[in-house]
Amino acid sequence: MKRSPILGAYAVAYLLFLYGPILILPLFAFNDSRIVAFPLSGFTTQWFGEMWADANLRKALGNSLIIALSTATISTALGIFAARSSVRYRWPGKAVVMGMIMVPLVLPEMIVAMALLVVLLTIGVPLSIFTIILGHVLICMPFAVAILTSAFQSLDKSLEEAALDLGETQISTFQLIVLPLVMPGILSAFLITFTISIDEFIIANFLGKGDPILSVYIFGQFRFPAKVPSMLALGTLLVLFSICMLAIAEYFRRRGIAKTGGKDSGGFL
């Protein structure tokens, strides 16, 4: 088939626009100059050292890890309940409830953050890391539920019946058959919600009390030109980290599909 060269050029331009800026990040993170501009002046790892020496940044990283780990744990656990119940059981109002869980996916995050802030202040909940976790669970749930629903759906119901038939109880069947087979989906949901939480900015900024949070801290540091290179170094690490997490999540998702003998029906990567 003959294709127009314009289409090829368009694809290349599109990808460059999308990923070019991200490639700039490591380039300047290793550039031996405080000024972010071409031409490059030399190789250095100084900015990584400077970044690590920043006590506030380490504090922010610690807080962010607490938030992301908590968010991932809570939303994955809740996601397991929601997905299992939506796939396996019938109950009144299921479509509405499942729809509501997915809504934050399409709501502007700004609106969610503002609404939460107003509600929390009105009912007198003090802002803290906990309130940020609350907001993050809200926006992470759709992702966890989507991944886990597909994991539970690819599970053949007769596998559970076979285990029951062979003398196991409902509970031991869940432990022996269901959990191991959806485990790749659970890991995948955990890693993706973790990744979403750790670089989330709007909710972290609105619902925090002022404790340093990674995304908010980075935004603040960009006001000082001297700090920019070390932030680029941090950004480089975060990009690497995100890619690793998504790759691991995708690996588990695909392995899960292969194990249960299903066909790949698309995913996040």
Binding site: S158, E161, L164, L166
Partner: peptide, 18 residues
């Protein structure tokens, strides 16, 4: 089902893949 004296061969065979 788990205490009935019956066992079943399923249409999909339901072999535990893991």
């Amino acid at each position: 089902a788990n205490v009935r004296p019956t066992n079943m061969v399923f249409q999909s065979y339901a072999i535990f893949p893991h």
